[in-house]
Nucleic acid binder design. Structure first.
Ligand SMILES: [Zn+2]
Ligand SMILES: [Zn+2]
Ligand SMILES: [Zn+2]
Ligand SMILES: [Zn+2]
Lengths: 142, 142
DNA sequence: ATTTAATTGATATTAAATCTCAATTTCAAT
DNA sequence: ATTGAAATTGAGATTTAATATCAATTAAAT
C-alpha cells in the first residue's frame, strides 16, 4: 500500500522507483519504531538488500516529501536558542511561507497537557510545541 | 538580574564568572530574538567584547543548564524519523530518566491547538509536541 | 602574594548530512 | 530486442556544527 503511494508520488515528479528506493521503503516500514538514518542504513545492509548511505539519505528526504514519513525532531542547520529568563513560557507558530514566528501562550493548553501527562502516569517538566502552517499575510497573498 | 542568577548558578557548581562568560551572557540578553551560536559569536565580536567560538558554545550549554536560556529546537545527535502512513497523528512524551517514549493522542488537545491558531489568523498544517519529564517507573524508582 | 583549580583559545577531531561525477540503470520509443 | 535520453547510484570528497585537546592564562580563596 505504501509502495503504491510512493510510486505515484515518484511518478508525478518524473522520478523512478528503483531497487534501492524499494529497499529503503521496505526497511522503513518493517518496524514501527523511531529510527535514525545510519541505523536504517545498517539494517538494510543486514537484511541482504543494498543501498548506499547517500541513497538512504536521499530516499528519506523523498519519503518525508511524500508524507509517508515524518521527522520526529525538526532540525534547522544548527541549534536555535532564546533567553527565557524575563519571558514567560510560550510556544511557537512558524509560517512555512515567510518564516514569521508567532509566540503564543494558552493557560488552557498548558493545563490540558498536564492533565494528559497525569493520565499517562507521567510528570511533564518541559515541552516544546511548534506549529507549522501559514500566517494571515501569506494566506491573503494567495 | 540574570547575571546574579548565573553567578550563583556557577558558584554552586564551583565554576567561575569570567569576562568571556559575562560577554556571552550580556549579548544573549541584549536582544529578545531567537539566535544561533555562530550568529551570537559574531555579535559578541562586533560589540567589542571577545570570546572564542569554543567559549560561546561552552557558555551556551551552561546557560541552558542554569535555566536562563532554552533551546527552541531540541536536537539529538542526528535526525530521528518515523513512518507515519498507517499510523494516526500522535505526539510524544520522553522520559529524561530512562529515555522511554510514550506516544499519545488527544482529540481535545488537537482541537484546542486549532482554536488557538484561528485566534492568531494562522492556519496550522502540522505540529510537533514533545513533552520531557519523568515516566511512572522512574518516578517510583526514586 | 601564593596556590590551586578552572578557563581560555587555537587547533584538531568527530560526525551528520550533502555534494560530485563517472558509471550504471531505468523506461519509453522505436 | 535495441536504442537513447534522463534519472540514479555509490565511493569518496566536502561542508559544517559541535566537541575535544592541551599548553598557557586567569580567577579567587587563603
Ligand atoms: Zn507550552
Ligand atoms: Zn520564542
Ligand atoms: Zn498533536
Ligand atoms: Zn512516534
Amino acid at each position: 500500500m505504501e509502495s503504491k503511494i510512493f510510486q505515484s508520488f515518484l511518478g508525478e515528479k518524473g522520478l523512478k522507483l528503483t531497487k534501492e528506493r524499494i529497499a529503503v521503503l521496505k526497511e522503513v516500514f518493517s518496524s514501527h519504531e523511531h529510527f535514525e538514518p545510519e541505523e536504517l542504513y545498517l539494517r538494510i545492509k543486514d537484511s541482504g538488500s543494498k543501498a548506499s548511505r547517500a541513497s538512504v539519505y536521499r530516499t528519506l528526504n523523498l519519503l518525508v516529501e511524500s508524507g509517508l514519513v515524518e521527522k520526529v525532531t525538526r532540525t534547522e542547520k544548527s541549534n536555535v536558542y532564546e533567553h527565557t529568563f524575563g519571558h514567560s513560557h510560550h510556544d511557537h507558530m512558524i509560517c512555512n511561507g515567510c518564516g514569521k514566528i508567532i509566540e503564543f501562550y494558552s493557560e488552557k493548553l498548558e493545563a490540558l497537557q498536564n492533565e494528559i501527562c497525569r493520565g499517562n502516569g507521567f510528570i511533564g517538566k518541559t515541552h516544546t510545541l511548534e506549529i507549522r502552517g501559514n500566517c494571515e499575510k501569506c494566506i491573503k497573498a494567495k
